[in-house]
Amino acid sequence: MASKQPDALLGPESDSQRTQYPYVTGTSVVAIKYKDGILMASDMGGDMIYCLIAHGLPVKVTMPELCSYGSTLRYKSVERIKPIGKHSLLGASGEISDFQEILRYLDELILYDNMWDDGNSLGPKEVHNYLTRIMYNRRNKFNPLWNSLVLGGVKNGQKYLGTVSMIGVNFEDDHVASGFGNHLARPILRQEWHENLSFEDGVRLLEKCMLILLYRDRSAVNKFQIAKITEEGVTIHQPYSLKTNWEFSAFQNPSQGAVGSW
C-alpha cells in the first residue's frame, strides 16, 4: 500500500504515530462582539467517534455529522472556552485533544511573553495571528490540528474577534461561529446582531443561537458555557441549561399522519 512508503515531502514527523482511535470532538462555538467586548458560547458535550478501519489501518473520520461509523455522546463537561493571557478568549470545536495541545502551545507563549516582564503583552490580534501560523504550518505538514478556533478579545479599547480553521483559513468579523454554527447560528446573527448590543441582549442572542443548535445539532447537549471578555478581563460563567420544549404534537404520536405498514 502506498501508505507504507515514507513520503519525502512530509518530513521526519510523518513517521510518528498520532492518536488514531476513537476520538473526541466538540461541536459549535458561537461568538459575538457586543458593546463592551466579546461574548462567546459553547455547549459542553464531547462526542466519541469510532473510526473506520480501512485496509487494516485506522483512519480518522472527518465530521461526526458526515460519518456513519458510530458516535456516542461520551463526555458531558468538556470545557471548550479558555482564557489566553489577559486579553484573549479562545473557543474551539473539533478534536479535544488537539485543542488541549493548542492550549499548551499558548500557555508556553504567554509564559515566555510574561517572562520578559517589561509591561508588554500579546493582545488578541497577536494571539490570533500566532494561532493562524500554527494551524497553517501543521496543514503544510499534512498533519493538521483538527479544530476550528474562535478567538476574541479586547485590548486598549479595541475589540477583536476572529477565527481560524483546521487548514489555516482565517478572518475577522463582528460575529463568528464554528462547525454547525456556521449554518445555523450565523444567519440569525446576520439578521439580529448590531454594534451596540448590551450584555443582556448579547447573552439573549447567543442563547437563541445555542437553542437552535441544541434542537438541530445532534452532538449538542443542553449544558452551556458563556464567557465574556472586556477591558476588565475574562469571566467564564458557570455551566447552565436552556429551557427546551419538545412537546410538539408531531412528537407525541409520530406515526399519526404517516400511516404505514407498521
Partner: peptide, 15 residues
C-alpha cells in the same frame, strides 16, 4: 511581524 502582525516592542529587541 510575520508571526504576530504587530510591531516588535523596542525594549525586547534591545534585550
Amino acid at each position: 511581524s510575520f508571526t504576530y502582525e504587530a510591531q516588535l516592542p523596542v525594549g525586547r529587541l534591545v534585550v
